[in-house]
Design a binder for these strands. Structure first.
Lengths: 173, 173
DNA sequence: TAGTTGTTTCAGTTAATACTGAAATAACGG
DNA sequence: CCGTTATTTCAGTATTAACTGAAACAACTA
């Protein structure tokens, strides 16, 4: 897989971006590469293109799989696994957010509930602060759940409302 | 500043959470500590409570300041700086998102626009893929801009609509 | 201004994470 | 089965990010 200056720039930036959000650089680069590739790629070709060890790619693919944005694709006459990633950006976005919520937000909610319960009664100040935080995250979480599960392309439409949101809200609130 | 088992649990979790989102653990812990503190704290007290070096706290405070969620508070009869953080969770959330967008999303948009421009004409496939991605992030970004700048507590109200969103969307779309 | 207290900087160290390559394992084909 | 090719595991190494503590600096006070 030959990288043009443009695609290389994209892949490198995506890797950099990933690490700022707590995602391993190679994982993010692998994802970027699969996203701009015009065909499913086998692991060794990814390794070669990104100039990282084959085993590193192996781990990265496993990680991407756990995020639910990777598909194995069989290629005729080639025993090697080939991989492609979700190309529909809205689906991709949704999938990643879902997983992130499951991994990080949900455990946080659980912990906050515990803490709030513990603070109740004996520590009013802490109780209030943590309740506020919990309440906010719960609201966000519920809201997200409703929005993200919009059927079909409704999410996309919703987001594209953009400037109409305030007016819309005026109607509803 | 004495940490109860509950507050300690919260502070530690918040730190852990931070690092999963690319935020330095000590920075996140400092933030958590200031959030649950019932009064502004001086840097050395933070250092003592978290058991980290004074200089580490100094850097963390600087970082929090750059995020716009830290206030210096003068305390009568004490020459030391005292710090408190935004206690309104909605404001806090908004501030952090704004900064994160500015630091990471905006540069990504710029880069994608460059790449799309470069791919135009000579690489239709890349052009399409990157355009899709750019389009999605632009939509999200615009949407965010409109939603986040809702006046007063409108954001909170909006989020708390929750389950009404699909119906609301039906009206508008 | 000298002394004191508080704060920041920064070179060096430590800790955490990512990565490599060789070896083990698994999957296939004859 | 035996040989071949693909994949994964893992112990060791490298890289990166975080943290420390001493020294420099700044701000105040008497």
């Amino acid at each position: 897989m030959q990288l043009t200056p443009t695609t290389q720039k994209f892949v490198l930036h995506w890797g950099e971006m990933g690490s700022r959000w707590g995602i391993n650089r190679t994982v993010a680069q692998t994802h970027a590469l699969l996203y701009i590739a015009d065909r499913p790629l086998p692991a060794d070709e990814i390794a070669e293109t990104l100039r990282v060890a084959r085993s590193n790619v192996s781990g990265s693919l496993k990680e991407l799989e756990s995020w639910g944005i990777l598909k194995k694709v069989p290629v005729l006459g080639d025993r090697r696994d080939h991989f492609e990633t979700t190309v529909d950006v809205w689906t991709m976005f949704r999938t990643i957010l879902d997983e992130r919520k499951r991994r990080e937000i949900d455990p946080t909610l659980e912990l906050l509930r515990e803490c709030v319960a513990e603070a109740k009664g004996n520590d009013p100040h802490t109780h209030r602060r943590l309740s506020n935080l919990l309440g906010m995250i719960e609201s966000m979480s519920t809201w997200y759940q409703h929005v993200i599960t919009l059927p079909g392309t409704a999410l996309e439409k919703f987001i594209k409302l953009g400037r109409k949101v305030p007016k819309l809200l005026g109607t509803a609130a």
